[in-house]
């Protein structure tokens, strides 16, 4: 078996350069974040090397300014957590509601056309997220395309405030993450055996019933995969809420960044980052468990 061990060594050697880069510049620093979350903030940012659980304490709680023994819920943080989760779920639902018909539309095109439609979905996926967010901003600004059009046609007198609202963030995220829902849904529909749909109609089911009892159960894995693919980047979103939401509608990502900027509380920021990571990893683990139980293929 020495021969086998030698070939394992070769595999590891081939992977070493990639792993080195990944550990140094991606995975390793995550552990440093964990360590920093237990330190004391420095006055000008950074940390002092003194152990403290204050960073973790402040994730959900806060002390009264005058009486440090009086502990209250940190309402501002709770609001941001709730907004992050709520907006991410809403984004996922919007993407699912619009993405399902879209994926179905692509999957039912003639085979030679399908590639083109699929390409049209993939293009936004590969184009810069910042630019797409910028495009949305241009539409919904107070003197942006939509408001200008509405005012010029006399429908409204003063611009509708859309920027810096939850709506803006939701619109932006649904817009930028839509392809992530359509692609796995399409993959599931592509594998769908249309004879099963025919069998459903043959057995007297109406269109709605075929959709509910035949199609949806069969493409469920695509639905779940798409939801995960939309939910995870939504929870981690930073650019879209920063540009469209501004300081008033912060999400978790912006709260984290704030601690490393004006907040000057690196340990709190590190603790928040760990919380975000835990949410993401938990979601992923739940998904992988589900996928393994279903015996379906896991596409990452």
């Amino acid at each position: 078996m020495a021969e086998q061990r030698e070939s394992h060594l070769w595999k590891w050697l081939l992977c070493t350069p990639a792993l080195l880069v990944l550990v140094l510049a991606a995975s390793g620093p995550l552990f440093i974040v964990l360590a920093y979350s237990f330190l004391t903030p420095g006055t000008m940012g950074g940390v002092r090397w003194e152990f403290s659980t204050e960073g973790w304490f402040r994730v959900f709680l806060q002390r009264d300014i005058f009486d440090p023994d009086e502990v209250r819920w940190n309402q501002a943080h709770l609001t941001i957590f709730w907004r992050s989760i709520s907006l991410s779920l809403q984004t996922t639902i919007i993407c699912a509601v619009l993405g399902f018909p879209t994926a179905w539309f692509i999957a039912t095109r003639p085979p030679h056309r399908r590639a083109l439609w699929l390409f049209l979905i993939t293009i936004p996926f590969w184009t810069n997220l910042l630019i797409r967010t910028f495009a949305i901003q241009e539409l919904i600004r107070n003197n942006g395309t939509i408001n200008t059009l509405l005012m010029r046609t006399g429908i409204i007198d003063s611009p509708i405030q859309m920027m810096f609202t939850d709506f803006a963030v939701l619109l932006g995220m649904a817009y930028v993450f839509m392809p992530l829902m359509v692609l796995p849904l399409y993959a599931a529909m592509d594998k769908l055996d249309f004879r099963l749909v025919e069998a459903g109609y043959d057995l007297y089911a109406s269109r709605i019933k075929v959709l509910w009892y035949v199609i949806l159960p069969l493409v469920k894995p695509g639905f779940i995969a798409g939801s995960i693919l939309v939910f995870i980047p939504s929870i981690g979103a930073y650019v879209t809420p920063r540009v469209l939401g501004g300081g008033r509608t912060m999400m978790l990502g912006n709260l984290i960044a704030l601690q490393f900027g004006q907040g000057r509380n690196w340990p709190l920021g590190a603790a928040l980052a760990v919380v975000m990571l835990v949410i993401v990893v938990t979601t992923l683990v739940l998904y992988l468990r589900w996928a393994n139980r279903e015996g379906g293929q896991v596409r990452v």
Partner: peptide, 19 residues
């Protein structure tokens, strides 16, 4: 390890690298 950058939110990787 190879797929890790795909899973971890960019903002987390970002602050980790910042530190």
């Amino acid at each position: 390890l190879i797929n890790q950058p795909l899973m971890v939110p960019e903002v987390v990787t970002g602050v980790a690298l910042l530190i």
